[in-house]
Write a protein that binds this DNA or RNA. Structure first.
Lengths: 342, 342
DNA sequence: CTGTTAGCGCGTTCAG
DNA sequence: CTGAACGCGCTAACAG
């Protein structure tokens, strides 16, 4: 692999002239430029960005650390981040933590070593240590999707509490009085916020809180299956299940099928996070939709504002609205059919 | 951000001793090691892997360049690649090309500049130029999922031709005589191979080939919708649709719904690529399943074999088998119900 | 066991 | 318009 020196020798100029051609900086005579370009083509020269970054102290790369590549919610978010980054002519490194803090910490260590210019983080758990670790190295970071306590950091997220509140209200308006909430890990803010919204809706309505109706688990299909089975086995089982994300919903739906229960005739089921149109052969699930793409895009824009020093000193917290989409998985309890369209 | 020199000064040793502690190489007295470790902790020192890689001429990073982050087929493949890489203590950079050769070429250029140690490539189009570009720089590359013509390169892929052949046979055995194949871009080998398998099944059976029944498009939902509409408008419309991937299938299914056609009563629909269990609330589609995870894992293992010089000189072509999973989207033509289970 | 020297490939500085 | 010298942060090779 040839170096800038090889190119210089080949073109009969100094390395500096080659460098100027490469970076379009300073003045180079037309003749010299042509000779350099010919040498580059002939040698198949590829500049070494390691050396370049070492000198320039910037990598023009940001990292997106997130918790699940297999979840379209996050891949959509990733796409938003990539689109924003490419407008600034930056590259994005995608890092999948699988909801594991250990993996996350390993990635963060590697990324700091690689000297990425900034980090977009969906924290595996809502703790501030990882954020402070990054900040201690002077690397700008924007937290996405989830809150972290007591950290001075920019955050772009959705209003989980409100989304959960509205969906719970919707179910209550249908007549449901026994709604189970199947949520994620207690250490994740979105999992907790969705519980808070749910509880607020219930208590506003003067409804008793049944502890057994709120179950913490993981954002996975397997966990959704288990949690659903658990609440269905209760002496007074729920007439509606509210899943805190799409994977939990898928597992819960399977548990209903296995129990021989019809949706929404016997039990309603609703969830956070829509599936992309390409997934659902027939859109069926009533959902709280979150603007994943926008979240990725806006978080990345905020990161670049920080990188270029254009953002205000104070930390920003951008909270995006959610939207309820009613489909065919929800209906009134004990009434065949419910509010079906067809 | 502190450097190795700061640490050395702080610990009262030379930079070389610090380097030895960091890399666990050579001899360091217990006392010196402790002083160095204390200094590292106190300063929050993070080694600069740019400088390290510049010296050592290896980044311990491989890149996975693939065509669609939002498709679970590829994210599953990515997971296989990541798992294999992490066993070798390597990092993986994920690059999403969106089926665009322009994006792909841009990523490849960046990756070569970043001096990744190897590249795993799902080529956006089945052309050999990008592969040769990489090889010219002496960077090992393994092609995945798709063939490239006339290139001396390792390939790990599935047997698309055979999978398509078997699925077509299955449809013919059900009694179908008018099967439309909705496939991807003509420039992609998997799209073409699936046509070849389809044609072989038809001609083996002595069936006439109807040109209008084979439609090339994109691996997207929108394209699937359009292609389905096109064949449904034919004078003699198909009794079965065979989609070349899951996104095409989703679009085709929607076109059937919009046309008021029932599946599989009126029309059968089958496809390549299963959806992960977490997606399909009710597994419904009859599919040709491909071992995506294994493909990612094995391709990565092959890449590491090359990196360590353990692989045989000759290029390998690993062809993984596909598997047909019959569900409820396929039945006999003109017969209500067909081979439904429940 | 430890330190010194040199150089990885590039770009900044400053003098021609 | 062009080039020489230096250093980014780190480690291989060699002394001591």
């Amino acid at each position: 692999m040839s170096t800038i020196r090889d190119v210089a020798r080949h073109a009969g100029v100094s390395t500096m002239t080659v460098s100027r051609v490469l970076n379009n900086s300073g003045y180079v005579s037309v003749e010299a430029r042509e000779r350099v370009e010919a040498a580059i083509a002939e040698l198949g020269y590829v500049p070494n960005s390691l050396a370049r970054s070492l000198r320039s102290k910037q990598t023009r790369t940001v990292a997106l650390v997130f918790t699940d590549v297999t979840n379209p919610f996050f891949t959509t978010l990733a796409r938003g981040a990539e689109d924003a980054a490419s407008h600034h002519d930056f590259n994005v490194i995608l890092c999948n933590t699988d909801e594991s803090e250990a993996k996350q910490d390993r990635y963060l260590a590697v990324l700091l070593q690689k000297r990425v210019d900034g980090i977009l983080l969906v924290p595996a758990r809502s703790r501030s240590e990882p954020v402070m670790l990054i900040q201690r190295q002077g690397v700008p970071v924007v937290v996405m999707d989830r809150r972290v306590p007591a950290a001075q950091v920019d955050v772009v997220r959705c209003d989980s509490e409100r989304g959960a509140y509205e969906m719970t209200r919707y179910l209550m308006d249908l007549g449901h009085r026994h709604i189970a909430l199947l949520t994620g890990p207690e250490g994740v803010s979105t999992a907790r916020d969705r519980v808070l919204g749910y509880l607020r809706a219930l208590s506003e309505d003067g409804q008793p809180i049944e502890d057994a109706m709120v179950v913490y688990g993981d954002f996975t299909q397997a966990s959704g299956y288990d949690m659903a089975q658990q609440v269905l086995g209760l002496p007074l089982p729920p007439t509606a299940l509210f899943a805190a994300n799409n994977f939990i919903a898928a597992g819960a739906f399977r548990a209903l099928s296995d129990a021989g229960l019809e949706v929404p005739t016997d039990v309603s089921i609703v969830t956070f996070d829509d599936l992309p149109a390409a997934w659902a052969y027939e859109p069926f699930m009533t959902v709280v939709e979150q603007p994943a793409y926008d979240m990725g895009y806006q978080a990345t824009e905020l990161l670049f504002a920080r990188l270029s020093g254009q953002a205000p000193d104070a930390c920003q917290e951008v909270i995006l609205p959610t939207r309820i989409i009613v489909r065919h998985s929800s209906g009134s309890p004990l009434v065949t059919g419910g509010p079906r369209d067809h």
